[in-house]
Design a protein around this nucleic acid. Structure first.
Lengths: 341, 341
DNA sequence: CCATGTATCTGGAACGTTCCAATTCATCTA
DNA sequence: TAGATGAATTGGAACGTTCCAGATACATGG
């Protein structure tokens, strides 16, 4: 496999200097139209490919953004990552993406690798857990970086935090369930002590307290299988519970199929269920699942815009940004669904 | 923001030459332990970060692999991408990932961007449709690239193809349904004319023909909503159908909730359903969904190994590789489920 | 006809690494 | 002791760009 042609080869072929070729590459106005055409033709003929790494060596600004996600298998995070990546792509940036599987050590490793690869900024949905997280490495490299969806590193001046307004979401959902007549509302799923869980719990607790109702919190690993198992446990240990606010949609959908399994009806007259995140499957389950909509796609695009403004325009984002959420009511919690947008 | 330190700064601080620092960076054996320690200490003190782009300029081999996927929202592709990325990460490679949303033009654009960013190879699950696909650009750049999960570009000598053995999968599934006593087996979902659909259909058609049964093919866009709508259509237009082999799990899960919606029982005695791909949700639905397991995680890892062997060891993969699949039997199609691995 | 301006184009010095050939210095061999 | 061996280190030339400070050619105005 022979060497790739460089601008020098192109210059020779077009009968101009390498500087001129460089100007053409940058669409400079100060190059004659015919010269430009000749250079372009030479590039085409030689099969020239631009070497961005070499260019960045001189004038840095790689056009690469690192995206580090704790759990890409969860559709909520997937959707976030995809919408972010596509928004970046539209603006000519590429995304280096890595899944850390909730492992801080892995996270530190991939962050290190990304820094070496010359990313101009990082967006991290951090893994929980102690030890080396990689944020120190980012600080050392002096790169712009945001924490999204979870706050793990306290230095929000260095690493601004952005996530949907979870407390408001669980408040909306709890108010809705109370308005629908539920009196024994359980909160299902979420690992205790984590910020996301605490935030989603906060709105629930506050609203119940305001209505003089008692909370029942059943935490746990938040997957489909946990929700499914919880259906049986709820029926056996807490038969009085008439509504469940779930930590996320995975738990809620699991609970839904668990209820189908044990033959317990879901919805008005049965167990009312509300999920959190409003992933795509919510609208397609049976019964369709009510959920707190975080507009994660819009959030991803917003984060893309924020990070690009930081990188390109030097606009530091606020230390904390909590976009609003809303509640989508479907048959799993009410007879009268809200209109789909 | 001040300039990052370079090996020259490190060399000055450690009182050695830049060459020695470079040797330390490469863990060369021919540098004295104390010198190495001194250099390491200087790096630490200055907060040195390695500049891989500069290194690659001299001796190319970027350690970046491009991953271009047509639909990352589909958990099947997500799982593939993640397992591939994580396998690469283990071997010290980073993955640049992009979703093309089934748009060839977007695909061509991101492939171009990745080539400029200096990826050493590409793995593409291509979008269907005409026009510029980006494969020509890969060929021009002379980069190793594989087509996975779908074959779109005919040049399999240049772009080897790898995908699970779909025809064998649908054969297994159809044989199973026949053995279970089904006589009117429909094939639901999949867009006609596409290779994946044709392959998944092939095993179904062949097996039915061998058993003297008539096929019923109901193609369509393969999402959850399509499956859900199909439940009603099946009951109304084809009441004799006693089993459905679905194009993928999304359709099957949609069909499952559609059956719940119209009150039609699923499983032995009702409509038997088998999905395709065996995504994680299959085991958690109610009833649990039988599916053709492609071991997509294992497949992703295998593809990672193949591409690295190509990049690092110059081992060209075979033009076509079709790893075996198997059938996981659950309650949606039989009273006697197969053992989960 | 000279000075000035304008539109194009160009040579060479960066950028931060790697790699090769060369150098140093101590130790070993005959 | 001269020469060889070998380990550790070093200087300088790449790598493919960008960018700056000219250089060139030609038209313009006085």
């Amino acid at each position: 496999m022979e060497r790739r042609p460089t601008i020098i080869d192109v210059a020779r072929a077009a009968g101009v200097s390498k500087s001129t070729v460089s100007l053409v590459l940058q669409n400079s106005a100060s190059v004659r139209a015919e010269t430009r055409a000749a250079v372009r033709a030479a590039m085409e003929a030689l099969g020239y490919v631009y070497n961005r790494a070499a260019a960045n060596l001189r004038s840095s600004g790689a056009g690469l953004i690192g995206l580090v996600i704790n759990d890409l298998r969860n559709p909520f995070f997937t959707e976030f990552a995809i919408s972010l990546q596509m928004a970046l792509s539209e603006r000519g940036f590429a995304a280096v993406l890595a899944n850390t599987d909730e492992t801080p050590a892995l996270q530190a490793q991939v962050i290190g690798a990304m820094i070496e690869h010359g990313v101009s900024a990082l967006i991290v949905s951090p893994a929980y857990g102690g030890g080396e997280t990689g944020f120190d490495a980012i600080a050392r490299a002096g790169l712009p970086a945001m924490q999204v969806l979870r706050r793990v590193d306290g230095r929000t001046d260095l690493f601004p935090f952005a996530a949907p307004d979870y407390p408001a979401g669980s408040r909306l959902a709890t108010e809705h369930l109370i308005a629908e007549g539920a009196r024994n509302i359980a909160f299902v799923g979420g690992l205790e002590g984590r910020m996301v869980t605490e935030e989603r719990l906060a709105g629930y607790r506050a609203t119940l307290a305001g209505a003089g109702l008692a909370p029942l919190v059943l935490p746990g690993r938040s997957g489909r299988s946990m929700g499914r198992a919880m259906a049986r446990r709820l029926a056996e240990d807490h038969p009085e519970v008439d509504a469940a606010l779930c930590f996320n949609d995975q738990v809620a959908l699991g609970l839904l199929s668990g209820c189908a399994e044990i033959g317990r009806p879901v919805g008005p007259g049965g167990l009312r269920i509300v999920g959190f995140d409003d992933i795509e499957d919510c609208a397609q389950s049976w019964p369709p699942l009510s959920s707190v909509r975080c507009d994660i796609a819009g959030f991803g695009q917003a984060v893309a815009a924020t990070i690009l403004a930081w990188v390109e325009g030097d606009v530091t984002p606020p230390a904390e940004d909590r976009p609003a959420v809303d509640l989508v009511i479907r048959a799993s919690s009410a007879a009268q669904p809200s209109k789909e947008r």
